[in-house]
Nucleic acid binder design. Structure first.
Lengths: 190, 190, 190, 190
DNA sequence: AATGAATGAGCCTTCATTCAT
DNA sequence: TATGAATGAAGGCTCATTCAT
């Protein structure tokens, strides 16, 4: 029975994910989720007691999955892979939870709740990229004075691109030139 | 009487601004604004018919004001000035409308309403910085291969820092090292 | 307009009074009152935000009215008048708010809210009767060792009769013999 | 197995008693009891189908137990014993079911359901005290014109004190002076 | 017997919006 | 123009009650 419950819980999470991807965070109501899941109001409350708690679950799940392997032989390959993943995410406007995630973070901030699932995710990304660059520097592939600052620079840039993609718009060409610019600045300075 | 009306309209806008700065965008209700302005419910509707329309007015007004003069003798001075303004904005978490603005943009996107006020503001900033860099390159102060890409890079980075400041957090030290990194990359490569 | 509002407020209080008299306290919902008053849900909330606040208003109003003059020439007349008023209240099972009042008091107690509109009313009654007896003793009409204790005795007895009338039942004959017993004990002991 | 069932039923009653003592009658839900008993929702329904039916069981059980022996050699001793028991009950605000009982009775009255369990209990008490007084009168210990009226007087007074203890408050001193007053009036009048 | 997930009714509360004055 | 009372829709939450297992 607990197995069945777990499956239902997962079903709710998966269904809710599409709702959040569709409508962002703040606009989603428990009723929306009830309707999307085609269950009763009370039924939803057995599993979750707010849209926040559902969304929380969604992002921690997403966080787990995103620790997935950055593959590549050389540091350059790994960085290229990482940046390409980022590019995909930047461009995946509709299907993604990014907008909802930002709304959620802003909302959390506005109510003074500095919850950290998202901060954690940011720092995990930062660590990953820092490790890649450091590896590249050690192998002589990259040149970098201050690895931490460069890693941060890349992360902020990605963040800026994601935001821009969702607000003012970015062209794929713009993204590409930014990515090339990063790679170039790591390699060029010999 | 149109004069009196204009003054009242302006009063509403100014008062509402503090509300949005306080609570973000989505959480603000017409009731909040009515109360902050200490006017009647019906009275507000004479001037605005939704929080969106009020916020719209606020940002177009803000856009006008932000074309502020970038002062400085040399391009380096101007860039330093510009970046310092950005830094102030990044750090001005509470008093600023930035959070509300992002919420608004995300909301607009989520209901498929791609507003351009924000895009305009972004491009104005981009133009400004591009002009500065170009000036610096021409005067020999800066070195840059692709001015447009570098200008975009700076803008996205600023955007990323603003977001991070409002979600995962940034230290002033981190901001400073990013700004120095930018300046360094423009000057260093002779 | 404030006049109209005051009239509406009063209308709600008066209508709600019949609802409470009918159904007691705990069973009454905001919806019940909305329906009895034939106004909108939101409309009721303009004036009151809970059944408690409405009931509170009802009892403070009732308290004011009950300070009404105890009439009579001699202390004996006054006491007889007072007791007769009490008798009426004891017997007025249906139309009265007494049941709702007790429910309210128990509820208040159970949530630890020792609000005192009711305690005040009790003490006002106590003071009244104490004054009457004291007057009678001084004029030689009554005989009493300890006026305070006798006054309390009468008040508790009245309370007991009211409760009994609403739970186990009392006959008018029983009430009368109790009232005569009180009067007798004040006069008899010369 | 009927034995096991009986034990479980008793367990529910005993546990529910503490819940009612805590929260009164009207505020207790089936869910509260389910949680207090740590059984399943469905499980509770096998034995009882409403809070009313549980509470009913509790009070009939209590009624059986309250026919406790009034001990004492002389009528004076017995009366003193009886009154002392009453005093304890008056003061036992928290641990007792009295509040819940009153709420229950008022609720029953408000829905027009005149239960007799309470009336029975009242009359049993009345009979007890009447017998004691009569015994005292016959033995010459007490003086009383109208035994029934005095017995009723005492019962109503006790009721009034119980209510007051649970609503407006009574001091132990007040109770004592009332009890002394009663005893005094039975003895004093020779 | 027992479990506890599921349902749906019922009440609460807040606002956007209208409208008579 | 301005007011603010009034409405009703919308969403939140909690339970009593049922039922498949």
């Amino acid at each position: 029975m607990s197995d069945k419950a777990a499956r239902k819980r997962q079903y709710i999470i998966d269904t809710a994910k599409t709702v959040f991807a569709d409508k962002g965070f703040k606009s989603v109501t428990m009723k929306d989720i009830v309707e999307a899941c085609d269950i009763s109001r009370g039924g939803l409350y057995i599993y979750f007691d707010s849209t926040e708690s559902i969304f929380n679950e969604i992002i921690s799940e997403a966080a787990k999955q995103s620790i997935e392997s950055v593959t590549g032989k050389t540091a350059g390959d790994k960085l290229a892979f990482f940046l390409n993943e980022q590019k995909k995410e930047i461009l995946s406007k509709d299907k993604s939870l990014a907008t909802a995630l930002y709304e959620y973070l802003f909302y959390m901030q506005s109510i003074g709740n500095s919850d950290n699932a998202a901060a954690d995710a940011f720092h995990m990304g930062l660590d990953t990229i820092e490790a890649i660059i450091r590896e590249g520097v050690e192998s002589g592939e990259f040149y970098a004075d201050d690895v931490h600052t460069i890693a941060l620079n890349i992360m902020y840039l990605m963040e800026g691109l994601k935001i821009a993609a969702r607000t003012t718009g970015v062209s794929e060409k713009d993204i590409d030139s930014q990515l090339i610019f990063i790679l170039g600045s790591l390699i060029a300075e010999e």
